[in-house]
Write a protein that binds this DNA or RNA. Structure first.
Lengths: 156, 156
DNA sequence: AAAATATGTCAGCACTATTGACATAAATAT
DNA sequence: ATATTTATGTCAATAGTGCTGACATATTTT
């Protein structure tokens, strides 16, 4: 019986996957991009989840817990490990809603603002530097591309 | 004592972080991009780690364990959970090196090749569609940008 | 008064990744 | 020939992030 367990020795190519190169580039670009923040987060004993929460609270101060969950697409239980830590470390403050007192509005403190700026700085720099090497109006085009990348998968 | 615990109510802006919009776009773009594969992986009981291993073994059939660890930037112990599963499920085969018999050369099977193609297809489609909406020569420019995004962080 | 909403919390599980320590086989150096 | 280095594997413990299900509390709406 021919049970030679078929090896494949040829690599996948653009023939197989048209956007092969870009898939790979996106993978490495994102890895190095988040790596910038990871190094700083580690000093605080925080992880990426902390970063994301801190980021969106700074982006939209006063947002509610439900809104945050919606943006991050995580569950309440996941947030429950991370948010209390950010509150206890005085990076985020919770305020009871005035209209609806069930709601918890999330605000950054000065400390929280400072940290998010420190985390974003190297990422912003990396993008800035990348644009410098791509020449004029790359900015507009890349943004257009990125926007088009966002959303549910298409069937075709 | 004025311990009003200073709130910050203003959002961060492009003033604070020049590439704010692109940071966000990259975050959402990547999330949806990997989401394409996540749905398929879940059917096989695999995670992203399996995907990455399978991808690079298909990209460079015959690569060694050490090379794979180098590319993925993970430790041997992390791979030790994932690789045996892919071997047992007949997606990857290990062959002893001929020159150096300490080495384990990793090859995809037919099944492994088929799976990596199935995983990459929706990702490739997403990128393709994104380019359709950005017009001509976006491809070259975006690739140039992505390449420039890769590497160690810069000090400036 | 009853139902719905917003949030919190407890318990348990899964996946990915880490470090440190130790083991084995094979190649290389002395 | 012996010693060391290299490539890989494995065991044990820990951390971070996410999930589901169940239940509790406060507040608002019906």
């Amino acid at each position: 019986m021919n049970k030679e367990t078929e090896f494949i020795t040829t690599p996948i190519t653009r023939e197989d996957i048209p956007q092969l190169d870009n898939i790979e580039l996106l993978f490495f670009a994102y890895r190095d991009f988040v790596g910038d923040a990871d190094r700083i987060l580690a000093e605080y004993g925080f992880g990426r989840a902390h970063h994301r929460v801190l980021y969106f609270v700074n982006r939209k101060p006063g947002l509610t817990v439900a809104e945050l969950l919606e943006i991050l697409q995580i569950t309440k239980q996941s947030l429950a490990r991370v948010l209390p830590q950010l509150i206890q470390s005085d990076h985020i403050i919770q305020a009871t809603g005035t209209n609806d007192r069930r709601k918890r509005l999330l605000y950054p403190t000065r400390k929280g603002r400072d940290l998010v700026l420190a985390l974003s700085a190297p990422q912003s720099r990396r993008i800035d530097n990348a644009f410098k090497s791509t020449g004029r109006n790359a900015d507009t085009l890349v943004m257009k591309f990125m926007k088009a990348m966002i959303g549910k998968a298409t069937g075709n």
